[in-house]
Write a protein that binds this DNA or RNA. Structure first.
Length: 829
DNA sequence: GGCCCATAAGTTTTT
DNA sequence: CTTATGGGCC
């Protein structure tokens, strides 16, 4: 396709009456078809099923897309096809995804087909972002103003806490956090306070659950605010109560596409049905999903939605994508065999044509404990690295996030670059939220929750008493808190000290609000943080995190530059909680299995395949067979992330809540087909398989001979394997020290400020160091530090250098104690 | 109002 | 064993 945006017409203005689709055979249609015809090249690369999914544009279509079968490609090509054949204008296509990332990717990929016309798809987005759009248009129908604010979980909990206390309840016995989750659950099911089951209502706060939920909703209305659930529920209500509004959207949306349909919850399902089910009209709705990858049941997703599709949309075409383009036949064979143990599937059989006899089988490794597991995986990674495998092509996928620590610790010691995906998000960090609260009050003076958050941050002597006073005035006069505060400083009601402090706050906000339209928003933002004393607060903070927080604030300002205004930025942040990851750095990814869905890597490590951890005990206890099946799907997701190499690990001992426990290999290991799996003993060089013979309470994965035979452990693999690994390890680390210390960055979680830029290779003379393997690297990159220097480390905070050993520093950290780290990870204070 | 100690709890996560 | 939170004391 050519890159000209003129290929596709975008003259359908956002708020114009929905334009009719070009009439079949009409001049416009023919013109477009003529232009499109020679470019149907986009269909060429598709297999027959994919092509069918793209070209069956009319009527309901369910695409069951197995892992790695080109799902996103089908979705994007389908949209491109609809556009190219002139069946609809971009603004007539509703395309919903779950995550911003997925939405972004679709926009980009459609952009490739269509030219740069990404702006032309106004209704491509997440359920929530589309919900905002709908709600801004029709806010008044549910008693809101279209300037409503979107609360995040933090705000929500603080609000609920107030309400619980206002009811005279003990907020310790009835934690707001827990209640927030209950409300979330109700909203996932599309339930209003009136509709929640009696039992649920009774379960909280001595039967006041329903009352509190209703009070919460009322409070939101007075605050002109919504939570995430409301972004779906309000539109549902509008569609139900105002059929003419719904009709408008029926007319507008000629084509509806839904990604990851197996993850939809009841509310999303209701929302979708309202839009997609129309009387006596063929509905062009296309849902794409994979029932085998449904892993969000615990947060309200209903696999049933996908299983029921044909009933909901009679006459639906069901297309199965089963040709896998991602993984080797061994990996696929293992995954398919495992998932076949689930009942109640729609059933797909993945196949691949990649059948290179040399491709490695899925490897299962045993280790003595989780520490050894981390060590062995680290060695394997370094071995691969020395064979020129990029760290970016590798990932460690864990069941629970506590497993990550051991790997992080290990990689820090090894000096192995890693990135943690899915940790605390950038916009969820305290300093970012505080800063955002300031911006919110400036942009939306009625945002009481934001005001309350920062009125005493930094500390200004405006404690609980002062806040209550402001609160009372605000309630009495029915004005926002900022206004109430303004009134209060004009009276004698407050003691002089808090009064003066509050006056400064009020005057500051007035000045900033005044500047809002005259100053560039980034400048203003910086000014606010300076003048409020917020940056100073962190500058004066001597804790380990403070420098990182300041860095984050800078990053926040930087990221604002991409937006036109403060308001635009605030909307973005409310909905898009993620941050781009730094693709520049070569690093291995560590993440949970859940956050790995949709990703792929050449090499995947899956540690912790033990009963109780995976499948997780709690899933079994609370979910029964359904829970087990979801765990199995999670295992399936994990296995199918790998393209070439897949390593499963289990440890015989694992520390859980501090104490060591002996574990049994996961039942999922039993469920793998022997033909595609190879059991390796390299990892258990120490201590072998720590289970006494015959102690296992159920059939052993591969027959006892393979796992329990200590002989094979120490003879076949262990010794040479260990030695080889040792060798690789040394060469790999040496090489890395040489190349890294220039720009090495340790990132923990995304959005975390980069720290420890190279320790700077000063002209420090080669120190005499008692050191063995370090000696070599010393000449390469002498450390610029000297004993006694004060340094900062991203993970451990500030400390003093106690000893230097080439590039390895021994540091006495103020908080973390003595650690050995590479100099690239620390920066001078 | 701020700091320190004690206690409790401890999958998975998006918006 | 950790980490987060809350209460109590200065």
């Amino acid at each position: 396709m050519s890159g000209s945006p003129d290929d596709i017409p975008f003259f359908d203005e956002e708020d114009a009456a929905p334009a009719p689709a070009p009439r079949a055979g009409g001049i416009a249609a023919r013109a477009m078809a003529a232009r499109a015809a020679p470019r149907q090249a986009y269909l060429d690369g598709l297999n027959p099923e994919q092509a069918q999914a793209v070209e069956t544009t009319e009527g309901p279509v369910l695409v069951l897309a197995g892992a790695g079968t080109g799902k996103t490609r089908v979705l994007t090509t389908r949209i491109a096809h609809i556009l190219a054949t002139g069946k609809a204008y971009p603004s007539q296509i509703l395309a919903v995804t779950f995550t911003n990332k997925a939405a972004r990717e679709m926009k980009t990929r459609i952009g490739v087909f269509v030219g740069e016309a990404i702006e032309g798809m106004p209704w491509l987005g997440t359920f929530h972002s589309i919900g905002v759009k709908l709600l801004r248009r029709h806010a008044e129908l549910v008693g809101l103003k279209s300037s409503f604010t979107i609360l995040d979980t933090d705000d929500q909990i603080r609000l609920l806490k107030q309400l619980i206390q206002a009811e005279g309840l003990d907020d310790k016995r009835w934690p707001a956090r827990q209640f927030a989750q209950m409300i979330d659950g109700w909203k996932n099911k599309g339930l209003t306070p009136k509709e929640i089951p009696e039992g649920d209502a009774r379960a909280f706060a001595n039967g006041k659950g329903r009352e509190l939920y209703a009070a919460y909703q009322n409070r939101l209305l007075t605050l002109n605010a919504v939570d995430f659930g409301d972004l779906l529920l309000h539109p549902i209500r509008i569609f139900r109560e105002y059929p003419d509004v719904l009709k408008e959207y029926h007319k507008r949306f000629r084509y509806i596409l839904v990604d990851e349909y197996q993850d939809t919850n009841t509310a999303q399902y209701m929302w979708l049905r309202l839009l997609a089910q129309r009387q006596g009209q063929s509905v062009n709705v296309c849902c794409v999903g994979d029932d085998d990858q449904s892993i969000y049941g615990w947060r309200g997703a209903e696999v049933d939605n996908i299983l029921r599709f044909e009933k909901d949309f009679p006459g639906a075409t069901v297309i199965r994508l089963e040709r896998n383009y991602r993984s080797t036949s061994h990996i696929l064979g293992a995954a398919s065999h495992l998932i076949a143990h689930n009942e109640g599937r729609l059933g797909k059989t993945l196949f691949t044509e990649q059948a290179d006899p040399d491709e490695p089988k899925v490897q299962v490794h045993a280790s003595w404990d989780s520490e050894e597991e981390a060590r062995a995986i680290g060695e394997e990674i370094e071995a691969l690295q020395s064979k020129k495998h990029a760290l970016n092509d590798m990932a460690i996928l864990v069941r629970a996030s506590f497993q990550m620590r051991e790997f992080e610790d290990r990689f820090v010691t090894l000096g192995l670059n890693y990135r943690v995906i899915g940790g605390p998000r950038f916009y969820e960090r305290q300093e970012i939220r505080d800063a955002m609260a300031y911006f919110r009050v400036v942009a939306q003076p009625a945002d009481d929750l934001a005001f309350e958050r920062i009125v005493n941050v930094p500390k200004r002597g405006l404690g609980e008493a002062a806040v209550r006073q402001i609160h009372d005035v605000a309630r009495m006069r029915q004005v926002p808190m900022l206004q109430a505060a303004r009134d209060l400083v004009g009276t004698e009601e407050m003691k002089p000290k808090p009064r003066a402090a509050l006056r400064t706050v009020v005057e500051n906000f007035e000045r900033w609000q005044d500047m809002l339209d005259r100053t560039s928003h980034t400048e203003l933002a910086e000014l606010i943080l300076e003048e409020s004393g917020y940056t100073d607060m962190w500058k004066n903070d001597r804790s380990a995190e403070a420098p990182g927080r300041l860095e984050n604030l800078k990053e926040l300002i930087r990221s604002m530059e991409e937006y036109e205004s403060l308001r635009g930025f605030l909307e973005h942040v409310a909905l898009v909680m993620d941050a781009e990851r730094d693709e520049e750095m070569d690093a291995i990814s560590i993440m949970t299995l859940h956050s790995a869905k949709g990703l792929e890597f050449d090499t995947v490590f899956l540690p912790g395949w033990e009963e109780g951890l995976f499948p997780h005990q709690r899933a079994l206890d609370e979910g029964g067979r359904t829970g087990l099946e979801e765990e199995r799907r999670l295992a399936y997701v994990g296995l199918t992330r790998a393209k070439k190499n897949l390593h499963l690990w289990f440890a015989s001992n694992r520390r859980i809540h501090g104490l060591w426990q002996t574990t049994m290999p996961s039942r999922f290991l039993d469920e793998l087909p022997e033909a595609h799996v190879e059991v390796c003993e390299d990892g258990s060089a120490y201590g072998g398989y720590g289970r006494p013979d015959g102690q296992i309470g159920r059939p052993n994965p591969y027959g006892r001979s393979r796992f329990d035979d200590q002989g094979s452990f120490s003879n076949t693999y262990a010794t040479p394997g260990w030695q080889r690994a040792q060798k690789n390890r040394n060469s790999a680390t040496d090489r890395n020290w040489g190349t890294r210390s220039g720009h090495q960055v340790e990132r923990i979680g995304y959005g975390e400020a980069d720290s420890g830029y190279g320790a700077g290779r000063g002209s420090v003379k080669g120190r005499t160091i008692e050191g063995e393997l370090v000696a070599k690297s010393v000449s390469d990159t002498p450390s610029a530090f000297k004993v006694g220097d004060r340094v900062f480390h991203m993970k451990f905070g500030n400390g003093n250098i106690a000893a230097i050993d080439g590039n390895k520093l021994t540091i006495d950290f103020d908080k973390a104690g003595q650690k050995r780290v590479l100099d690239g990870f620390v920066s001078p204070v």
